[in-house]
């Protein structure tokens, strides 16, 4: 088992990532209308929910732990939402690409070695930054009244950390118990040691 081999995505990794993305794409599609409906409350309750949009990347990265997975997942999820005719249409693709890239960057900083709650939350936070950058241009974010903007940002941060930092972490922990993750991760040295008995 050379080290290099484990970092290249194989067909299983790619398929699993995309399927996960698709599941989340479907969730986004179904969430879309809910999200849209809480918007008129004006108090940015929608911003709390916004976090769910970043979930695909950290979730897939936690599951597969290889470079490129986070970006692929978020992009594929956005593409899926686009093909399912989600509200916002093509806009989602740009958000997906940028959020995926930012999310990926955080895992890359730790060289795909560390997948603790804090790193995952940080990756959600990075995706949030990406979305804010786009929103600044697309949704005229700076044009909101000051107090409103701050409320908005706070809600978004809370939402992102809860829904795309903690939630995927808890979900993957749950999945680990089911044993499906076992065959996704590289075979460890202990597993090989059994063969020497």
């Amino acid at each position: 088992m050379s080290k290099g081999k484990n970092t290249i995505l194989n067909l299983t990794d790619i398929l699993v990532t995309i399927v996960i993305a698709l599941v989340f794409g479907l969730v986004f599609r179904l969430m879309g209308p809910v999200y849209d409906l809480v918007q008129p409350l004006g108090l940015h309750l929608d911003a709390l929910l916004y976090g769910i949009w970043f979930i695909a990347a950290p979730f897939a990265a936690l599951l597969i732990r290889k470079p490129g997975v986070a970006f692929l997942a978020e992009t594929a999820a956005a593409l899926a939402e686009m093909l399912f005719a989600g509200s916002g249409g093509i806009v989602n693709l740009y958000y997906g690409l940028l959020q995926g890239a930012f999310s990926e960057a955080v895992f890359a900083i730790w060289r795909y070695k560390k997948f603790s709650v804090s790193v995952v939350s940080l990756s959600a936070f990075a995706a949030l930054i990406a979305s804010i950058i786009l929103d600044a241009g697309y949704a005229y974010l700076p044009m909101l009244a000051g107090w409103n903007l701050i409320l908005y940002l706070i809600f978004r941060i809370i939402g992102a950390i809860l829904l795309s930092g903690l939630l995927p972490y808890v979900l993957v922990k749950g999945l680990e118990k089911t044993g499906v993750t076992q065959s996704l991760r590289p075979v460890t040295k202990e597993d090989y040691d059994v063969l020497d008995k």
Binding site: Q182, S183, V187, T188, D191, V194, L195, K197
Partner: peptide, 12 residues
């Protein structure tokens, strides 16, 4: 041939 499933401590 020696083969064991991951996390199992006996060989198949």
């Amino acid at each position: 041939l020696r083969l064991a499933f991951p996390k199992k401590n006996t060989m198949l």
